[in-house]
Design a protein around this nucleic acid. Sequence first.
DNA 1: CTGTTCCCTACAGTCGCTGTAGGTTCAAGC
DNA 2: GCTTGAACCTACAGCGACTGTAGGGAACAG
Lengths: 149, 149
Amino acid sequence: MTENYPLTIGQLAKQAGVHVQTLRYYEQEGLLVPGARTAGGQRRYTKAECQRLHFIRHAREFGFSVDQIRELIDLAAEGNRSCAEIDAIARRHREDVRRRIRMLRELETELDRMVGECAGGRVTDCRVLEVLGDHDHCRTDHGHGGESS
Amino acid sequence: MTENYPLTIGQLAKQAGVHVQTLRYYEQEGLLVPGARTAGGQRRYTKAECQRLHFIRHAREFGFSVDQIRELIDLAAEGNRSCAEIDAIARRHREDVRRRIRMLRELETELDRMVGECAGGRVTDCRVLEVLGDHDHCRTDHGHGGESS
DNA sequence: CTGTTCCCTACAGTCGCTGTAGGTTCAAGC
DNA sequence: GCTTGAACCTACAGCGACTGTAGGGAACAG
């Protein structure tokens, strides 16, 4: 943080390790609107705005959606309230992460069985295709109303 | 499977538990093109086409992409070859699943610490916001070039 | 022949960016 | 002051795997 403020969009992008277009996208989504522009219309970011970007990026790395982050920012702005809602968002998100882990684990188990039993013969006898073609091969009830993503 | 063939798109969709539009999408992507249409232009699906749909759905539940599935179908069509390529696709996919599990586990750990330490006070003291605002709070080096999705 | 239900094509929207086209502004060097 | 080149601007299309909508045609029962 040896930068001198305000920063241009390119400087901020570089500092935060994101693309310039990402910053314009965050602005469009209402997450990070620079308070000032030059006479010619170019964006200039203050230190506070840079800190907000770090918050946003960090929350994204935690897997929070842009909508959730907007909500967190709005709640944070009313600093005097109980943080119960913020806690609730984080807990819901954790449940979501846990659910995804569970499904991926089941998937991994099935893929292990599938790959392990492929003897490397001809395609017509391929275990992988066989398993994919018939749900009865599966032990766990992955999917049939599942997640993806 | 007490249906009488050929099936209309709606009957097939219902049987397979997918939307009618999804079938049209699979056709557009070259995964499942019905061999016949009525004089009026409506799609009719044979039993073999229904079985292919089950293969496709099952592969999707395993997290294979539409591109990967097209590749699997193409390889399966040349039934006489070695199934090494099919095995390779499955193994690569398994690696991908494992990588995603690892990242989600790290995320879960951080969310646990975050949520666990929120005392339920005022927003200005909220542990969740604090952690999100400062990467130094994290033990694991999740992200900073991470996965998402 | 009418009515209802299903089907058709074509296109826009989802999410979180990324990439492109075509034009403008800024800062540095002369 | 003038020129150059990099960085900036807006607006829009594309990704993946669907989902939803609009406006119309086909199939079938009564």
